[in-house]
């Protein structure tokens, strides 16, 4: 476990030190959420109604676009080669990196979401539901995005490719995240079933993501 922890701590430290790390994703989230009223108009009643969906969309974009550099920087400076010679299975190494990424980028999104909820006139109770579903759902976004990050580094392409590859895969997460939130706010379906499915999606991607990403890296780095 020392190798796992060492990699986890290194990645957290790197994001905290260089490039504003955690704050950049939250800043992107803030800007996306701010742009929506400019497109839809400042009607608070409307914003309050669709606010949870806007927050979910913003969080999805922010967590996926932030994944762009996850493997690229390690690839460029040769760290990835050395990581591959470690005794830690690549699946676990990739998990450590994804976990570090979620802690420094996904978790801040969950934390700032209530503040952004104020801008969108989301009621207190609805905001709790959004925060809870984001907490349960953002790990799924990170671990699904992980696959895209691994594919894009092996294809030597970054940026939009990752989003194009991964966004279709995030559809279920978005569906159940938003429907769990709406269930909590307005009903008529109960909150339980969609939320449980959301948690299940997170747990599933926690398993599938690292295996797929490790396979992609092994195949692609030849």
């Amino acid at each position: 476990m020392t190798a796992f922890n060492a990699l986890l701590m290194r990645d957290i430290r790197l994001t905290m030190r260089a490039g504003g790390g955690a704050l950049m994703g939250a800043l992107f989230f803030l800007i996306v959420v701010t742009l929506v009223p400019f497109a839809l108009g400042p009607d608070l009643a409307l914003l309050g109604r669709i606010g949870p969906s806007i927050l979910w969309l913003g969080a999805l974009l922010a967590s996926l676009l932030a994944l762009d550099r996850l493997f690229t920087s390690d690839f460029e400076d040769g760290s990835l080669d050395v990581l591959l010679t470690g005794s830690l299975p690549l699946e676990l190494a990739v998990t450590a990196k994804a976990l570090a990424h979620w802690l420094t980028t996904g978790l801040p999104l969950v934390i700032v979401a209530p503040v952004l909820g104020l801008l969108l006139n989301i009621e207190g109770g609805a905001m709790d539901a959004v925060a809870l579903t984001l907490l349960a759902g953002t790990p799924a976004l990170t671990f699904i995005g992980l696959i895209g990050a691994a594919l894009s580094v092996t294809l030597r392409r970054g940026g939009l490719l990752l989003a194009v590859l991964v966004m279709p895969l995030t559809v279920p997460v978005l569906i159940f995240g938003v429907s769990a939130t709406n269930a909590a706010v307005s009903g008529p379906v109960p909150f339980g079933p969609p939320f449980t499915i959301l948690c299940a999606l997170s747990l599933m991607s926690l398993v599938i993501g690292p295996f797929a990403a490790a396979t992609a890296l092994r195949q692609g780095l030849e």
């Binding site: 800043l27 803030l30 800007i31 701010t34 400042p42 608070l44 914003l47 801008l119």
Partner: peptide
């Protein structure tokens, strides 16, 4: 919060500041 013109302008100014910081 209301999307009052004045408040909104200040919010955009805030985003610009954060961009410079970033």
């Amino acid at each position: 919060w209301v999307w009052d013109a004045r408040l909104t302008s200040v919010l955009v100014l805030f985003l610009l500041y954060l961009g410079v910081l970033a």
